[in-house]
Design a protein around this nucleic acid. Structure first.
Length: 461
RNA sequence: GGCCCAUUCGUCUAGUGGUUAGGACACCGCCCUCUCAAGGCGGGAACAGGAGUUCAAGUCUCCUAUGGGUCACCA
C-alpha cells in the first residue's frame, strides 16, 4: 500500500513548487491505488492563517488534485504529541533543558567567533541537580554521538552524514510545551502510515533529525524522495519577487490546469522525448525514482506553448466553461464551434481567447488608426458598398463556405483582389486588420450584422 | 564557515562505456497564406575544467571550479 502526503505550512498561497511536489505525491499514490493525504503543518500557532489553508484547498480543487479523507491539522493533535514527548522523557531519550535564550545566544556567538559550527553543547543532557529557578525548560531529544546516519533517497541515492557534523540535541518541545516541526513530522508520517515521503530538496538536511525521532520512538522509516528546487530564469531560487508563484494566479492569466500540470511534471521528470502528457498518461508513466537530481529553471515560454497546445485540442464544451471565468459566455451562440475553431489556433491563453471572442461578437467602438491608414484608401468605400449590395441580393447565406463562394463570384466579376476586400472588411467587422478568416467572421456575426458594421464604417470614415 | 546536494544546447531534457550527442521550447530562414496566428520544412546552438581507469568516457574514479540547500524555542 502506497501512502503519500502533501504537508504545507499555512503561511501563504500554494506556490508552483509546492504544487509540483503535490502532483508527484498525488500521481504516485493514485497510480498504486494508494492514498494521498493533506496535512497542515501548523504547530507554530502564531504563524498560521486560516485563509492560507483555504487557499491551498482551492488550488487543489482547481488543479484536480483530490486528497483522501479529511484535512489533518497538526494543531489539533497536540495531546498526541505530548504523549510521545512524555514517553521519550520517561525512557530517558529526551530531557529538560534550562538554558535561557540569552545563554544560548551567547553560546552561539562564541562558537561563531571561533569559526565553529553553532550547536547546543549538551549542558543539560545528563543534568541531575537542582534546575535554575524561573526558567520554563524546553525538551531536547538525545541525538547520537559520533554515529553515521545513512538513508537511501529515492532520487539522490544513498546519503550518509556524521551525527556530529549535522545534529545536536534539538528541541522537540518549546518552553510553552508546544512541539516543534521535525518532531511532529516524523510522528505524523509514521502514524499516518506514510510509505513514501515526496517533498522539496530543502528538507534533505532535516531528514537525519527525523530519523532520530523515528528511531527513538521505534517507528518504521518511510522511503524519502527529495525533489530538486525550481529556479527562476536567472537560475536562482524562485521567490515571490519573481512573480507568477501563486497557483491561482495562473487561472487569472488564462492558463489551463492541464497545461500547468503538464508543465510541472516535465520540470525535472521525463519519459523519453514525450512532451504532452494526459492525466492518464501521467498516472501510467510517472515514477518518482526517475525524477532528476538537479534543479530546473522555470520557463514561462514553454508553459505558454503547452497552454496553446491544450487550447487547440480541448473539446468545445470544456473551452466554453473555461471562457466563462473571463465573462464570455458563448454557450447559446449558434456559431460557437466556428467561433472557437477560428480562434483557438491563435490564442495562447484563455484570457486572450476571451478577448478575441469579444472583438468579434461585439461591434467595434473604434478603429485602429494604423490599420485604417494602410487599408482604407483608393476605392475601398466603393468596393465595400458594392460588396454589401451583392450580398443583399444573394439570398440566405450562413456557413463560411457559402460566403466564400459568393465572394469569389463577386471578386471575379469586379476584378478585385481578396486582400483589397478582406482588409477593409476586417476593419469594419473587428476594428483592425487582424482577425481570423473573413469568411469565418462573417459567418459568425451573420449577414445583417456585417452589413450594419460596414455601413457604420463607411459613415464614420 | 561546517555538512549535504547538483553540473549535457539560452531553457526543459534524452543518454546507463562504442551515438554524425537525440527531442522540445525559444531564436533565425524558407514554404503555405485574405491579415495575424497556426502548420510544414530547414538552420545555428551543449557534455563546467583538469587528472586518471579503459582499446574506447557525456557515461566510471578523484581533484578543482561554479551553483544550490541547510545549520532557530520557523516550517
Amino acid at each position: 500500500m502506497i501512502t503519500t502526503r502533501f504537508a504545507p505550512s499555512p503561511t501563504g498561497y500554494l506556490h508552483i513548487g509546492g504544487l509540483r511536489t503535490a502532483l508527484y505525491s498525488y500521481l504516485w499514490a493514485r497510480k498504486n491505488e494508494g492514498k494521498f493525504l493533506l496535512r497542515i503543518e501548523d504547530t507554530d500557532l502564531a504563524r498560521n492563517s486560516q485563509e492560507a489553508t483555504v487557499a491551498i484547498e482551492k488550488a487543489f480543487e482547481w488543479t484536480g488534485l483530490a486528497h483522501d479523507g479529511e484535512v489533518i491539522y497538526q494543531s489539533k493533535r497536540f495531546d498526541l504529541y505530548k504523549k510521545y514527548i512524555q514517553q521519550l522523557l520517561d525512557e530517558d531519550k529526551a530531557y529538560h533543558c534550562y538554558m535561557s535564550r540569552e545563554e544560548l545566544d551567547d553560546l552561539r556567538a562564541t562558537q561563531k567567533a571561533n569559526k565553529q559550527r553553532t550547536k547546543y553543547d549538551g549542558k543539560y543532557r545528563d543534568f541531575d541537580s537542582t534546575p535554575p529557578e524561573g526558567i520554563s525548560p524546553v525538551v531536547r531529544i538525545k541525538s547520537p554521538i559520533n554515529r553515521v546516519i545513512t538513508f537511501t533517497d529515492g532520487i539522490k541515492g544513498e546519503i550518509s552524514v556524521n551525527s556530529d557534523d549535522v545534529l545536536d540535541d534539538f528541541i522537540i518541545a518549546r518552553s510553552d510545551g508546544t512541539p516543534t516541526y521535525n518532531f511532529v513530522v516524523a510522528i505524523d508520517d509514521a502514524l499516518m502510515r506514510m510509505s513514501d515521503v515526496i517533498r522539496g530538496d530543502d528538507h534533505l538536511s532535516n531528514t537525519p533529525k527525523q530519523i532520530i525521532v523515528y528511531e527513538a520512538l521505534g517507528f518504521e522509516i518511510p522511503k524519502f524522495y527529495h525533489v530538486p528546487m525550481i529556479l527562476n530564469s536567472k537560475g536562482q531560487k524562485l521567490s515571490k519577487r519573481d512573480g507568477a508563484m501563486d497557483v491561482m494566479g495562473y487561472k487569472d492569466e488564462g492558463i489551463l490546469p492541464v497545461a500547468l500540470l503538464n508543465f510541472l511534471i516535465r520540470l525535472g521528470w521525463s519519459n523519453g522525448d514525450q512532451e504532452i502528457f494526459s492525466k492518464d498518461e501521467m498516472l501510467e508513466l510517472f515514477n518518482p525514482s526517475n525524477i532528476n537530481k538537479s534543479a530546473s529553471a522555470y520557463n514561462y515560454e514553454k508553459l505558454i506553448w503547452l497552454n496553446s497546445h491544450y487550447i487547440k485540442t480541448l473539446p468545445y464544451q470544456e473551452l466554453i466553461e473555461e471562457l466563462k471565468y473571463f465573462d464570455v459566455d458563448i454557450s447559446i451562440n449558434e456559431k460557437k464551434e466556428i467561433l472557437i475553431d477560428s480562434l483557438r489556433e491563435r490564442a495562447k491563453t484563455i484570457k486572450e481567447f476571451a478577448q478575441s471572442i469579444n472583438t468579434i461578437i461585439k461591434a467595434p467602438v473604434e478603429y485602429e488608426a494604423k490599420g485604417c491608414k494602410k487599408w482604407l484608401k483608393n476605392e475601398w468605400k466603393e468596393i465595400l458598398t458594392n460588396y454589401v449590395e451583392y450580398l443583399k441580393n444573394s439570398g440566405d447565406l450562413d456557413l463560411p463556405e457559402e460566403f466564400e463562394k459568393i465572394t469569389d463570384d463577386f471578386m471575379l466579376k469586379n476584378e478585385i483582389k481578396l486582400r483589397n476586400l478582406a482588409q477593409p472588411l476586417r476593419i469594419a467587422m473587428v476594428g483592425s486588420p487582424v482577425s481570423p478568416s473573413v469568411f469565418d467572421v462573417i459567418s459568425i456575426i451573420g449577414k445583417d450584422e456585417l452589413i450594419a458594421r460596414v455601413e457604420k464604417l463607411i459613415t464614420e470614415k
